[in-house]
Design a protein around this nucleic acid. Structure first.
Lengths: 336, 336
DNA sequence: ATGAAAGCGCTAACAG
DNA sequence: CTGTTAGCGCTTTCAT
């Protein structure tokens, strides 16, 4: 372990001069700087980020707290956030909660947050009572559909609008029995509910009733659940001529199930997904999907965070808001 | 900001007693403990991890440094590592390098590593000269195919064996012109080279020559490159009756391209991927793929890291090794 | 069972 | 242009 003090002694200067050199601060004579740099190199010295962070209160890192790393949606979003953060000269550290209440709370604990200058958080379990109790002064931007107390910034996608457009397209292209996979009978504020709300609105727009038998709930939003859901519908004898899946992963499973059943897409059954992940363009048939605007979400979240980090005044009273990024339907081969 | 000293004052004890309570150390009277806990709760105190870490030299966090977050392979591996680390009472923080030399070096800098008690690293750019120059005492386990100096632990998958088995299966099921997508003409030690080596060995096993026109290199290992590669082969008039793709993502693109060309899989062309990701089971047709043993790799990497963290002696001379985890071919619908 | 003192490695503030 | 002093919030050590 080489300390700054070691460098200072070896170079015959004080630690402050070493510190000034390292941090590129002005007011160091050129020859002194060179001597210090040479010594640093020679001893292989590297700053202790922990000590610096304790002293300055800054870490140079931004956190991204999410439920799962291996869903295509979060994987893609993380990658975009990481690349965008890098462009701004910051490092992104990604942390998984597994979608458990306990781990979400832990990730938002003060001690944990000290690791970061700011944090972007996508919660799936914590509800208002929990959120209201949160106390920290690390700048935070929330993503996702859970309603967030007004004192926090919140960026979300247009779940309702995107779903309405997708369902509307299906109903507008001669489908009359549109199933929703990953929907929700109850109307709360989670992702499934919001997307189901758009689905219901599209029906209402045309004066159509929703057959609740077509609303299929799912425990997860992964491929196997999409596969199971379509097979279940068939087994239950529920007729359908289109499927709106609330994620691309569900849609991938649904497409596979329809192939297993020997049904033609989009001839017999149309399919639309939500997320517009890279995979959509490579499925057979290529999947029409709702593009939620991840790029815009990533940039916006980082912009907001950057602002909060810079005006580090905890009592900063500037208005915070929930910003909704526009979604749009991308048509491919799985629809008519 | 509530400090430990604030809690101590409010509870009428010393900071040491508060510290002892928080860390569950013995030697605190029950009533004192309760009073301290009540005060902590009341003031909403949370330990400052940075300060603790400066003092103890430990952080409770393990790092995972990888090239990209959004490739299905790394996404899945990260998720497994994170879940496994959690089971061991540790937190995993994931950091992306983007596959650039500069960022890989930075991630391995001493200052950066101080954030972690130990780090698992999957490099793709750094070469021996760079690695030999590395100086740090944070325990590190390397993943991936780059050769690693003997002083480090290294866990890798059996790229050669898995590829040999996959190619062998194709050659053993009446395919005579097996293309490799994502292969490498030159034989070095990167992933593409190793998997191509297995491909060549399988040919040699049967006394067959490899037609270099069937070895298609690719810049990335993503779906679009797989798609492009198959179309290019066709356009160039190279005949083939099977495709071994060195990743599932490439295979997904290849399947899509074969569908575009109106070729039947596996009737006209067989396809095998490598990674055995969740998607393999939902493609049309379902993709046969080499299972690299991610679970075993994740557990092993964490075991090795845990050992190094515990025996924190930097001069620890116990032997380090490269451990190769066995790969095996999983057959599905894309092969005969 | 509890507390006082010292210090982890760095940098802000000020002095020279 | 360079150095001195103090202290970030915690835990280790040793004393009581």
């Amino acid at each position: 372990m080489v300390r700054m003090a070691d460098v200072a002694r070896a170079a015959g200067v004080s630690t402050m001069t070493v510190s000034n050199v390292i941090n590129g601060r002005p007011g160091v004579r050129a020859d002194t700087r060179l001597r210090v740099l040479a010594t640093i190199d020679e001893l292989g010295y590297q700053v202790n980020a922990t000590a610096r962070s304790l002293r300055t209160g800054r870490t140079g890192a931004i956190g991204f707290v999410l439920p799962e790393l291996d869903s295509p949606y979060y994987a893609h979003l993380s990658n975009q956030l990481s690349a965008a953060a890098e462009r701004r000269g910051r490092h992104l550290l990604v942390e998984r909660t597994g979608g458990s209440r306990e781990r979400e709370l832990e990730a938002l604990s003060f001690g944990h947050l000290r690791r970061y200058d700011g944090v972007i958080v996508h919660l799936v379990r914590l509800e208002r009572p929990d959120l209201d109790r949160l106390r920290f002064d690390t700048p935070v931007v929330f993503l996702g559909e859970s309603p967030v107390p007004g004192r926090f910034e919140h960026v979300m996608m247009d779940d309702v609008g995107g779903s309405r457009e997708a369902t509307g397209h299906l109903l507008g292209t001669r489908s009359r029995r549109v199933a929703i996979v990953g929907g929700r009978h109850e109307d709360t504020e989670d992702m499934a509910s919001l997307r189901t709300r758009g689905y219901r609105q599209a029906h209402a727009d045309l004066g159509l009733d929703v057959d609740e038998a077509l609303v299929v709930e799912s425990r997860t939003y992964s491929r196997d659940e999409g596969h199971r859901a379509v097979l279940d519908l068939r087994r239950a004898g529920v007729a359908f001529d289109a499927v709106f899946c609330v994620t691309d992963a569900l849609a991938t499973g649904a497409l596979r199930a329809l192939a297993d059943l020997g049904l033609h897409v989009p001839g017999d059954v149309q399919v639309v997904g939500f997320d517009n992940g890279e995979e959509a363009d490579f499925l057979v048939p290529r999947l029409s999907s709702v593009e939620p605007g991840n790029d815009a979400i990533a940039e916006l979240a980082l912009d907001l965070l950057e602002q909060r980090i810079r005006t580090a005044d905890p009592a900063d009273a500037r208005p915070r808001a929930t910003t909704t990024v526009t979604a749009r339907l991308v048509l491919r081969e799985s629809t008519r």
